[in-house]
Computed example of a mutant assay.
Amino acid sequence: MTLSLRERMETKLKAAFAANEIEVIDESHKHAGHLVHEGGAPQGGETHFRIRIVSPAFAGKSRVERHRAVNALLAEEFAAGMHALALEARAPGE
Rank of each mutant, 00 (worst) to 15 (best):
K30N: 08
E27M: 15
K30V: 00
D26S: 07
P56Y: 10
I25S: 10
S28D: 06
E27A: 09
F49Y: 15
V54T: 14
A41G: 08
G44C: 13
E27I: 12
G60F: 07
D26C: 09
V54Y: 13
G44T: 11
S28V: 12
F49V: 03
R52K: 14
H31E: 03
P56F: 11
I51C: 06
I25V: 14
V36I: 10
H34Y: 03
D26E: 09
F58S: 01
R50F: 15
A57F: 06
F49P: 08
H29A: 14
G60W: 08
V54I: 15
A59K: 13
A41H: 01
L35V: 08
S62I: 05
E21H: 15
R50V: 10
H29I: 10
V36R: 01
E27W: 15
H37F: 15
S28N: 05
G33H: 04
A41D: 02
R50I: 04
G33F: 08
G45E: 09
K61C: 03
E21K: 15
T47L: 07
V64Q: 05
I53R: 05
E21G: 06
I53S: 04
I53A: 02
E21W: 08
H37D: 09
G40R: 00
R63K: 00
A32I: 06
I25K: 13
E38W: 03
A57I: 06
G39N: 03
I22W: 13
